[in-house]
């Protein structure tokens, strides 16, 4: 995906950099370049600015696969164990990361591949995890067909308008509605993320062309 993954590809076939922290300054430079030339998403630049370079625990840009999700999650779990002293927080953050990454994967795996822009395809995603003293921040971005925006937007707005108890009620309602998506989740993902994080889902759609936009979701835990 853009400049950053070109570099990842030279160093690692998986386009996944398990030594992210050490090499991070370089990645940030690349991601910034990428954000300004390709993705055009302010949210990615804001995210990097807000986190600060020392606190980014993981970044990924490229086409996601089941193997890459597994590799990233294994690495993140280890990293959380090393950096997060509070066990319950470790578990909560990991849980949300699982949901976020599997969500990205499920949304891209079945897509027919199109070039969206400058060599990026609609199956490319960005995933970043940062930590400040106060909180963890997750950024997940994927391309979405413009025609699918209204339904996603209304779902996210509906979730964001709910308080803790309403979210719980909505979760139970969807849990018990008898509808299954192919992978079994049936629309619980975003509700679960909102519920566990205890924060509003901060999102943005950035139109890339007449067919696609980039959907960026920022989660604070």
């Amino acid at each position: 995906m853009g400049i950053a993954s070109g570099i990842f590809e030279q160093t690692n076939d998986q386009r996944f950099d398990p030594t992210g922290v050490e090499r991070f300054t370089y990645h940030l430079y690349l991601l910034r370049a990428q954000a300004s030339t390709h993705l055009k998403v302010d949210q990615i630049n804001h995210f990097i600015d807000n986190i600060g370079e020392a606190n980014l625990l993981m970044n990924f840009a490229g086409t996601i696969s089941e193997q890459k999700v597994n590799a990233i999650l294994t690495d993140l779990e280890q990293r959380l164990e090393e950096t997060e002293p509070e066990f319950k927080k470790q578990r909560k953050v990991y849980n949300i990361l699982v949901e976020t990454l599997q969500n990205l994967y499920h949304h891209t795996e079945k897509l027919e591949q199109y070039t969206v822009k400058d060599g990026d395809t609609n199956r490319d995603v960005v995933f970043m995890l940062g930590k400040t003293e106060a909180e963890y921040s997750i950024l997940a971005a994927n391309y979405i067909k413009n025609s699918n925006i209204p339904s996603l937007r209304s779902r996210l707005d509906k979730i964001n308008a709910m308080d803790k108890d309403e979210l719980r009620g909505f979760y139970k309602e969807v849990l018990n509605n008898g509808q299954y998506s192919e992978h079994g989740g049936g629309g619980l993902g975003m509700i679960d993320i909102a519920r566990k994080s205890g924060n509003k889902l901060d999102y943005e759609f950035d139109e890339v062309n007449e067919d696609f936009s980039l959907f960026a979701l920022r989660i604070k835990v």
């Binding site: 849980n95 699982v98 949901e99 599997q102 849990l175 992978h183 079994g184 049936g186 619980l188 679960d192």
Partner: peptide
């Protein structure tokens, strides 16, 4: 369970 994802939620139900 330590934890489960939402793909498991409906299956556990």
């Amino acid at each position: 369970l330590e934890y489960f994802n939402t793909s498991s939620s409906k299956c556990i139900l």
